[in-house]
């Protein structure tokens, strides 16, 4: 066997090892990356109409509190998350309803209506929002979120449109 022959045989083995190794790496590596980031690629977003109360129970000028829970399936577990808000009736028309989300826009504590202060107060960092949800005081960067869509059912119940994050 000549020297050059010996060398090319070695090179052949090196190249083959590289290619086979690379292939095995890719076949296992790429699916692994997908496997790891899979939860981040999920589209959530189940939609529902959720009843929050009777229209006739809501009084003009007094925020009407409501809350509801949604069960979400996360992997192998069901997690119940609570949501809440205030419906603010402005006139006789069911159209004329402002529905605020009571989740503080600062760091997600729950705000409460205080009749005394005439404001939504956040217990966490002393924020205050007015009855329209605008920031009066404290660290929140923007007004309270609103549930933009609602409807009145035949039984006189207000339902809001809810989309999971």
């Amino acid at each position: 066997m000549s020297d050059s022959h010996e060398l090319s045989r070695r090179d052949f083995i090196k190249v083959t090892t590289g290619i086979v190794g690379g292939l095995i790496g890719a076949i296992i590596g790429l699916p692994s990356v997908y496997y790891l980031i899979d939860p981040a690629l999920r589209e959530g977003g189940k939609e529902a109409w959720i009843p929050i109360g009777k229209f006739e129970d809501m009084q003009v000028g007094t925020p009407y509190p409501f809350s509801f829970t949604r069960v979400q399936v996360n992997g192998w577990e069901r997690t119940a998350s609570s949501f809440g808000g205030y419906a603010i009736r402005k006139s006789d028309s069911p159209e004329d309803l402002l529905i605020l989300n009571s989740r503080c826009t600062h760091l997600a504590c729950t705000v409460n209506w205080s009749a005394e202060a005439e404001a939504f107060l956040c217990p966490c960092h002393d924020a205050a929002f007015d009855i329209e949800g605008e920031v009066l005081d404290g660290p929140p960067p923007r007004a309270l979120d609103v549930y933009a869509e609602h409807r009145l059912t035949e039984d006189g119940i207000i339902e809001i449109f809810f989309k999971e994050a």
């Binding site: 997908y34 496997y35 899979d38 992997g75 192998w76 577990e77």
Partner: peptide
């Protein structure tokens, strides 16, 4: 349940 989830719920879980 978590193994069932790996097999049926996660991308390429069955492969891993």
């Amino acid at each position: 349940d978590s193994i069932t989830y790996i097999m049926e719920g996660v991308a390429f879980g069955w492969l891993i």
